[in-house]
Design a protein around this nucleic acid. Sequence first.
DNA 1: CCGTATCCGACGCGATACTG
DNA 2: CAGTATCGCGTCGGATACGG
Lengths: 118, 118
Amino acid sequence: MFTACDHTESPFRLGGKWTAKIVRCLEDGPRRFSELAAPLRGITPKVLTETLRSMERDGLVTRTVGDGIPPRVDYALTPLGRSLLAPMAACCAWAAAHLPEVEGAREAYEQVAGSAVR
Amino acid sequence: MFTACDHTESPFRLGGKWTAKIVRCLEDGPRRFSELAAPLRGITPKVLTETLRSMERDGLVTRTVGDGIPPRVDYALTPLGRSLLAPMAACCAWAAAHLPEVEGAREAYEQVAGSAVR
DNA sequence: CCGTATCCGACGCGATACTG
DNA sequence: CAGTATCGCGTCGGATACGG
């Protein structure tokens, strides 16, 4: 999703299940691994690691490791990642505003589909 | 992706591979099935049908069937679907503007990862 | 022209358990 | 604390062929 607008193919997609939420969690500053996991309820450490790695790979976040016991790792948005905040906020606002409409449309559609079968 | 911003779970995601492109294809008015398939190079009829159905289900597009030979079916954005254009344009603009950066970051990351292994 | 039917591989995501 | 190691399953997307 959200490749360039000219219908060319692009190898990167921003559509991971958790990506948007992680960006927003990092909006107000760096967060530790466990600080990210807490608000993202239900995410497993494996998936959180995977997602953060791919975001790091794409230049959206940085990963800084502190040396000590216990370990401390901080994740932070890069300027590139920060530039994502505005467009993503627009989409999030859309979702928040129109979720009820979508759900209503779904219910209405189920009615029609259900009656069509019978 | 792009559920409500409050970290609640939501059953709907806008992250289909072709959804965004279809919305933009419909921006300037209704399009027939084949008119959609043409610019979306590589999409199979099955997937196009599936995607359009789910968008119809969510109230984003309408499907109007003309009676005649050959058959004619037009797809058009609903007001709800049209309201998606603005936020999506923001994301598409981001992608267009920052795609090179992301690709650069990927190459740089490959360098590091590759040298780390060896 | 506008789809449907079938089959299938790949990947995303999760559960669970374990480690430096 | 911050991960890694395995395993598994469901969904998404694609190839191909056929139908009204």
